[in-house]
Computed example of a mutant assay.
Amino acid sequence: MTPPPLIRIGVMGSHSTGKTLLMRRIEMELRGRGIPVARTGKLGRRAALVPLPKMRHHTVASTMWVIATGIADEIAAAARLEEGPVQVVLADRACWDALAYFRAAQEWRRQPAPRAKREAPHRLASAHGHTYDLLLATVLSPALPVALKHDYDARYRTLVDHHTHDLLREENIRYVRVTSDPASQELAIEHALQLCTTEAPV
């Protein structure tokens, strides 16, 4: 019997906008329906251990590392067999995400990298970025408080949000905007469940 096609769902957006929580909820819903799922994540923490520049200090090299590592994680997740063949891979930070962070960092520093260097991470993200069956992009809500332990630069967070949605529009990629409104989040989860329960029979 031919296995069902692998479904890839990615999320991207500025920091502390609910990406990981959203993916956890989708994962729980899928598991509750008996659909084998694998979720990737923690790229930011791992980048800090390399160590590599983060956030507004992102460079071409750090961006390439994040994109390449994220792609490798997704490939590895799809190959897991602990609970049977994986039918859904949830990418907590789709490969386009690192490119949006990089563009935001360049604007924040007002120091754009040479064009030839800027094109390298774009080519890498583009090679994989069109394989997602569903992309979710969170929308920054400045009114929502951020935990005091996070020393975030407000301007940079806003730039990441802008570049996230600008990039997806530039690439002509269909995606679902997810705001902080619970109804918007529920709709995003419903999009994912509808896709997975239609394409991935249990």
Rank of each mutant, 00 (worst) to 15 (best):
P36F: 09
S14N: 07
I67C: 11
L195V: 00
V178S: 02
H162K: 03
R123C: 06
R45Q: 15
Q87T: 05
E27I: 04
Q185W: 03
A68T: 14
Y175D: 01
R155D: 15
G10P: 02
A47P: 06
L187S: 10
T17E: 02
A105S: 11
E74F: 07
D151A: 15
R25H: 08
V11M: 01
E82M: 07
Q111D: 10
T138G: 03
N172C: 10
Y132Q: 03
Q111K: 11
L22D: 00
G70A: 12
V146I: 15
D153C: 14
R177S: 11
P36E: 06
R103E: 12
C95N: 12
A98E: 12
T17S: 11
P51T: 11
A113V: 10
R118Q: 15
H165G: 04
G129L: 06
V50I: 14
L144H: 11
V176P: 00
F102H: 14
A94Q: 09
D133M: 01
A183V: 07
S126W: 10
V139A: 12
W65L: 15
E170K: 01
Q194V: 00
A147D: 15
C196V: 02
M23P: 00
P142G: 12
L193P: 01
Q194I: 00
Y175N: 05
L90I: 04
K149S: 15
V86D: 03
H15K: 02
R110E: 14
D133V: 04
A113Y: 10
L49R: 14
E119M: 10
A113E: 15
G129M: 04
M28E: 15
I67Y: 07
A72M: 09
V60G: 05
C196M: 01
A200H: 03
S14F: 08
R24V: 04
T164G: 00
A72K: 09
V11A: 08
A120R: 08
V160G: 07
R169C: 09
L52I: 13
L6R: 00
L21M: 02
H15M: 10
R24H: 12
P4F: 07
H122P: 00
P121V: 10
Q106Y: 02
A104M: 07
I173K: 09
P3C: 02
Y132C: 05
I26T: 01
A127Y: 03
P36L: 08
A38S: 12
L140V: 06
